[in-house]
Nucleic acid binder design. Structure first.
Lengths: 196, 196
DNA sequence: TGCGATACTGACTGATTAGTCAGTTAGTTT
DNA sequence: AAACTAACTGACTAATCAGTCAGTATCGCA
């Protein structure tokens, strides 16, 4: 079998469609068409539509986790504050290059599914913990090296995550030109965190 | 006709269901059952399902606009900074008491519909402009009375809106206890805006 | 009383959907 | 070459859905 498994092209098609149109607005037939496979073939690889969705979520989880660990491994910072601002910028950057992932996470149906599907819930938890942890770690480093003032690292990490997330949403609703706010956001973070 | 029009109970049922389950996961039959009316009766009052949704959005728009104008009319502030922090708190408060409204606004389908429905787009624009304007006005007042330092009121208003919105989302994903972050958020705003 | 309009109902339809299944093809092993 | 298996297909089904329609009940009003 020279070509990479059809299973993968189903996953890719499903990721794109679930992200672009949502779970219930995407039919298995559409996924099959995009993956260039018969409708029935999907049910050979994935038991149900929900099963397919969980697999998509799994691949998003693995994608986000590896992207962030690659980023952390590569970059080298002068201070905790720089590390945090860099993480904010990288988060915003990744959410543009891998928009499908983040749009999928923003969809309510994703969280509704996670409410009664253990594995989905776990994947979501992994993702959010990864996204928040990177801020928290930077905050702790920054407080140790003196670049960031004293404050609860856990709560502050959540607040910063909420801010970044909020900016992303603002961009998605397409009423305001939120892209131009990235620099303001970074400035706000610096201003708020810096050890005067 | 002693009882208030059935049209209203359809709207109420639809608001609840569209918010709780999403547009495509809510069937007209469900709406009818909850409104205690026959399935066909909905189509007497509303031409299509999309038409019903637009009416729901209209009622949410009118609800949010009146709630905020009532708030603005009632409260009286010492300074622009107090006005802004009050608006943040009120926004968070309203999003708890009228959760259906805000959940509906968070749903992707709402924005997808607005993308090719002029009236929906207008209602959404009204809502977001209302929510952002209240921050912008407070920022301008605060800069005039000296309680808030110099910064772009438009961009800062958007950032603050994004923050508040982000906190709301964080609460909805139900992984973190975001309610406890309200005070941290207000503190951050004060710290960032205050004219040292 | 009777007319017309408003507000509804039950029974239906055509389209779409997730999922099934019996069978076929292609590759691997013996 | 025969046997076995993994990957896949086309044709189907049962359920659900938005929307239609012909008819009915209830009302104000002439």
């Amino acid at each position: 079998m020279a070509r990479i498994s059809k299973k993968n092209s189903i996953l890719e098609a499903a990721t794109y469609l679930f992200s672009a149109k949502g779970f219930s607005n995407t039919s298995m037939t559409e996924v099959a068409t995009l993956a260039e496979i018969s409708g029935a073939a999907i049910f050979y690889h994935f038991k149900t539509k929900e099963d397919l969705f969980v697999s998509v979520l799994e691949s998003v989880q693995s994608g986000i986790l590896t992207e962030f660990s690659k980023y952390v491994a590569k970059e080298d910072f002068h201070s905790g504050l720089d590390m945090l601002l860099g993480a904010v910028a990288f988060h915003l950057h990744l959410s543009e290059t891998k928009k499908e992932w983040f749009v999928l996470l923003d969809r309510y149906s994703t969280h509704e599914l996670a409410a009664d599907n253990r594995m989905s819930r776990q994947y979501l938890q992994d993702i959010y913990n990864c996204l928040v942890d990177i801020f928290e770690k930077a905050l702790i480093v920054g407080q140790q090296d003196g670049s960031i003032r004293e404050l609860s690292s856990k709560r502050t990490a959540l607040i910063i995550f909420a801010m970044v997330d909020g900016i992303r949403h603002l961009e998605n609703i397409n009423l305001y030109h939120a892209g131009s706010l990235y620099s303001d956001l970074v400035a706000l973070c610096r201003n708020f965190l810096e050890n005067n």
